[in-house]
Design a protein around this nucleic acid. Sequence first.
DNA 1: CCGGGTTATTTCATAATGTGAAAACGATTA
DNA 2: TAATCGTTTTCACATTATGAAATAACCCGG
Lengths: 277, 277
Amino acid sequence: MNKSSKDTSVSSIQVIDRMMMLLDAIAANDAPASGDTRAGNTGTTFRPPASLKVLSAETGLHPSTAHRILAALSNNKLVERTEAGHYQLGIKLLSLASRVQERVDLRREALPIMDRLRSALGETVNLTVREGDEVVYVERASSHKTIRVEQVIGSRAPLHVTAVGKLFLAHDGHAACQTYAQRTGLIAYTINTLTHTESLWHAARDALQQGYALDNEEAEIGVGCIGVPVWDASGAMVAGLSISAPIQRRRDEWIPHVMEAGVQLSGRLGYHIRERD
Amino acid sequence: MNKSSKDTSVSSIQVIDRMMMLLDAIAANDAPASGDTRAGNTGTTFRPPASLKVLSAETGLHPSTAHRILAALSNNKLVERTEAGHYQLGIKLLSLASRVQERVDLRREALPIMDRLRSALGETVNLTVREGDEVVYVERASSHKTIRVEQVIGSRAPLHVTAVGKLFLAHDGHAACQTYAQRTGLIAYTINTLTHTESLWHAARDALQQGYALDNEEAEIGVGCIGVPVWDASGAMVAGLSISAPIQRRRDEWIPHVMEAGVQLSGRLGYHIRERD
DNA sequence: CCGGGTTATTTCATAATGTGAAAACGATTA
DNA sequence: TAATCGTTTTCACATTATGAAATAACCCGG
């Protein structure tokens, strides 16, 4: 009979849920083989294109059922078959997604999330994008406190003095960070500004690694930030989300909240969690 | 009982086909509205939303059925609901499509199509992309005839002397075409080269209108081309496909073949035929 | 503030639909 | 040639999706 232990939703259509499992399984097994073709593989780590066997095993569907659903998806160009008979995601997804693309607007998606974060923590939340060697403030949810930090929309700041900017630098890699350092001279804004190339790089790299960056009065004395990256569907870092507060009010407990907001916004832009590890 | 539908498929799953109808219907209603003067509104409405009523009418599905399927899709984030209750395509499509994006490579998709075209018509087929004021030859399926036209992969030609180049110019619009003309001076390569701004513009615009462009010995005496545009999922013109032959061998009957190849390749890149109505 | 018309949602009896065990197929490999 | 593995098709069955109708929510004009 049915041994369906993972009953996901109250009222959904079985076939469609199963279809979704299959699409996700295909997407997961579709991992690109770029740059990871080192010798000495153990043999089990590489990702073969998704065969029926694998997909049915991974989804728990009977091969027969999986095959039937995949054939239906194939008819509708939602999946394609390689000549070897393996499955990959289909072209139709591109044309459908292009419609979503047109609609998705960073600021519009960001605003409600920023609002919630501001309400939860009570401090000003900023959305920034990168432009060259600077971050630009493009949206804001202001704190209601009498003493608050507020950036002008449209204003800029160099990458190395902001939390989000350091994430951008880390994303660029070591070489680009060094080039940036040389190009800009890492001008000191406060006594705390990181002005040495390598300490900047290490701070940035560690920040990206842990998923958030701090700004400890590096741009302005008295102001502290927590910044997180925002990714889009293609895996590009398209923006940053940060909370800014008077340094004595800032709390480490906020970090998970800000990170959660970043994850949410990235999700709204089509980012899927398991990008690469 | 009353099944008067078009069952094109040999064996497909009903729900999935219906789901696809709905997704397509949503996509169609998601298109940028042109000439929709149904309601005189100002400001608040950016896009015409798709209501259940409209979708069920458009797909021929009973409202109840459509609603159920849409709810299932909604559970899986393939569609989203606006707060007004209308339906739009969902974020999940973005993350799925990004996987396709990674895989889709212009040249790889083009080669089999170019091969078929070459075999059908016996002349050299070229794939070109734009780079600034020039087209670059990036792929080729050579004719096997002893007398044939052959461009070097990687070589370039100015826009105004090639069939595909004129399509790019037309795509840019009148002003950009004029700028191009001023900037480059429309150097004559042969006696047939279009060296007058306006005649170039008219030729280009008409070509794009009709879906193909000719090159009548405009780059080199004795060589004639038929070129068609290649579009991607976002509606951008990303390349051109052209066939080149000694002018006395070129036939107008080839035009539909080349156009068909262009449509096929565009489809492989995610372009959906019905852009506007 | 109240009808009346419209649209969205839920219900539920029904059979049509998708299911999966098993068998057939087809490609490798021994 | 037989054996093995993965894919595809078949088919009897009941689970599953269906759609008519009833209900709820919503929107306007009076």
